[in-house]
């Protein structure tokens, strides 16, 4: 009994942290699902998150005195828009210019971190920004927080952004699987020629999908920089985008799967950060928790944890009239 009580206490402490860490991953991974489902590989998620994180912090620092406590939310919108525009580069290169999509993604990552640091140094004359004044605050959800066990675990002290992330994941699932738009998007990723024959504009669908991924990754980055890091520097994002990529694969290119994987990876991150204060976990070397998401993704891909099937046309530019 004692053991169960202490376990619950640990979970009350751990789960909110895990969900907080998962929110940026969920959004970015969902973005990746859109892009990859349309047949465009998006290694550039990391860079798009960097752009989002940068825009979020800069917006926050600049406009905090105007918008007050709603600044972080406004910053999300700004980050979404700018990251979506930034992702156009990836769309143009990989859809219109038929560039190797992986190479283009690598370029996006290099460009994003280079450009954002360049701008930080230009605007603030130092290597990283100040801490943001207005950040996302935790709150409890009325009524739901009263539910025993589940309430304190999931509905007390949660970030509004976590609710947003999970809602978007569910919305993405409905859009992708229960609307004509989603069907078309998936068709373009599986068999673009067949889709083209049925009158779907493959290029347009892919542009839209890549921009959705840019927008969502931008929101993800801005959430990360305004709730977890609270400033922007060269190591702010540091692999979150690639972890989101891992989540989307581990989740088998399905929005809810990606969400589940992101939650799980968030849990692993939370453990590696606050694990020191938890019995048993304390004895596990930190490195195992840090590499866990990546190892699991490799195992999932190798088919040890169910078979993951990528969209058929993933990574191949569509050239009209070519068989």
């Amino acid at each position: 009994m004692n053991f169960i009580v202490s376990l619950l206490e640990i979970l009350y402490f751990l789960v909110p942290v895990a969900i907080a860490y998962a929110a940026p991953l969920i959004l970015t991974a969902i973005g990746g699902v859109f892009s990859e489902r349309s047949g465009v590989v998006n290694i550039g998620l990391e860079g798009l998150m960097v752009v989002g994180a940068f825009v979020g912090v800069v917006f926050n620092l600049t406009f905090a005195h105007i918008f007050g406590s709603s600044t972080p939310w406004m910053a999300l919108v700004a980050a979404m828009l700018i990251a979506a525009v930034f992702s156009l580069l990836h769309a143009v290169a990989s859809v219109s210019f038929r560039a190797d999509q992986v190479v283009s993604g690598v370029a996006i990552n290099l460009l994003a971190i280079g450009l954002c640091l360049f701008l930080v140094k230009m605007i603030y004359d130092k290597g990283q920004t100040d801490f943001v004044q207005e950040r996302f605050l935790r709150d409890s959800i009325p009524l739901l927080e009263k539910i025993p066990i589940i309430g304190p675990m999931f509905f007390q002290n949660v970030y509004g952004t976590s609710v947003l992330a999970i809602s978007i994941a569910i919305l993405a699932w409905i859009v992708l699987y229960y609307t004509p738009f989603g069907l078309r998007l998936r068709a373009v990723g599986e068999h673009p020629m067949a889709a083209d024959t049925m009158g779907i504009n493959v290029t347009r669908m892919r542009y839209i999908a890549v921009m959705i991924s840019g927008g969502l990754a931008g929101i993800g980055g801005a959430i990360y920089s305004q709730s977890i890091s609270q400033d922007f520097g060269h190591a702010t994002i540091n692999g979150q985008g690639f972890m989101a990529l891992a989540a989307l694969i581990f989740g088998k290119w399905h929005p809810l799967g990606a969400m589940g994987a992101a939650l799980f990876f968030g849990f692993a991150q939370a453990l590696s950060i606050v694990g020191d204060s938890i019995p048993y976990i304390r004895d596990v070397p930190n490195v195992f928790l840090l590499i866990l998401p990546y190892v699991l993704t490799i195992l999932a891909l190798a088919g040890f944890i169910g078979k993951a099937n990528a969209p058929k046309a993933l990574g191949t530019p569509y050239i009209k009239g070519k068989r």
């Binding site: 283009s104 640091l117 360049f118």
Partner: peptide, 22 residues
């Protein structure tokens, strides 16, 4: 000038090489 300008240049070069088709 921030040295990151070179990272930007390198990234742009990769874009252009990758878009060699154009």
């Amino acid at each position: 000038i921030p040295e990151e300008i070179v990272s930007i240049i390198i990234a742009i070069i990769i874009f252009f090489v990758a878009s060699g088709y154009v």
